[in-house]
Design a protein around this nucleic acid. Structure first.
Lengths: 151, 151
DNA sequence: TGCAATTAGTTTCACATGAAACTAATATTC
DNA sequence: GAATATTAGTTTCATGTGAAACTAATTGCA
């Protein structure tokens, strides 16, 4: 996985590009499967998935957990509230802070999308041996610790 | 790397999500490093990288090689021509078909970005042992063969 | 206790992008 | 040779998103 010359690059061998193309292809396929059916974008899906796992989170906490920009979370939450899939209260101790929950509708949609999403994941993982699946998990865990800020 | 219950999902363990977050973080870091400095977007960079490797390609061929949408390639090419980094001719045998080349300016920009991009790649790969780097390459190659269209 | 700094989340503006429709050129068929 | 289908690439329109600025509420400090 080495790129030869110092001043040329082969995108096909460039790790960031390969990761990006693969990831986009997988994510896009999953998104296409639910976006029309449920009138739901990927940011909205991710917010729902975080809230389903842990009701009562603030928008800021969702942003942190989902590794999403707070603006994106804010927009997704607004749309989810408008569509009746998420309910919002404000914390008693801090009126700025929202507390987000899936509504009944939201949970129904969530529970319908989960098996779809999982079947895609299974299909992807099905390309790999059990050993390679474990290995991939380990590698992704290591890589996800990286801090690439160059300040 | 298994998600337990059939109707719930933990994003943190969901492979497509993990790939997406990791990939976006890496790609974003690289993009930030050149976009202001060179007034260049990621689609433009990718087009340049493909053309640098193989001058005289058509826009359609670039789209195929870069796994990019033809509209995105068209837009990137237009901007690269406007900024004087790419030259375009049209094929003698087919006036619809463009033939794209990096200009001198384009090649200079390209040669400045390549080491930056490679240093990010090296930093990412530096998180892994040599064995794991090889393994990751194998796994990505396998996964990239997947066809997720569900028609 | 009042004021400045900080925080939680929202909105604005400009630009990017997805989807569809379009133009011009070529290939195919009759 | 003409008409139709297809291809290469572009443009239009609507929506999403990045960056910055904003509002309201809370915290910290003098």
């Amino acid at each position: 996985m080495k790129n030869g010359k110092a001043h040329t690059i082969k995108l096909a061998d460039f790790l960031p590009y390969r990761l990006s193309v693969l990831s986009n292809r997988i994510s896009r396929a999953i998104e296409v499967s639910y976006q029309d059916k449920f009138d739901l974008t990927m940011p909205e899906w991710r917010v729902m998935a975080i809230i389903a796992d842990d009701g009562g989170l603030s928008a800021g906490e969702v942003a942190t957990k989902a590794e999403m920009d707070k603006v994106a979370v804010s927009r997704a939450v607004s749309k989810l509230i408008d569509s009746g899939r998420v309910d919002r209260q404000f914390a008693e101790g801090d009126k700025r802070k929202s507390e987000l929950f899936l509504s009944d509708d939201g949970r129904k949609v969530y529970e319908q999308i989960v098996p779809i999403a999982k079947s895609y994941e299974a299909e992807v993982l099905g390309q790999l041996s059990a050993d390679d699946q474990v290995k991939l998990g380990q590698i992704l865990r290591k890589l996800s610790q990286i801090d690439l800020d160059k300040n």
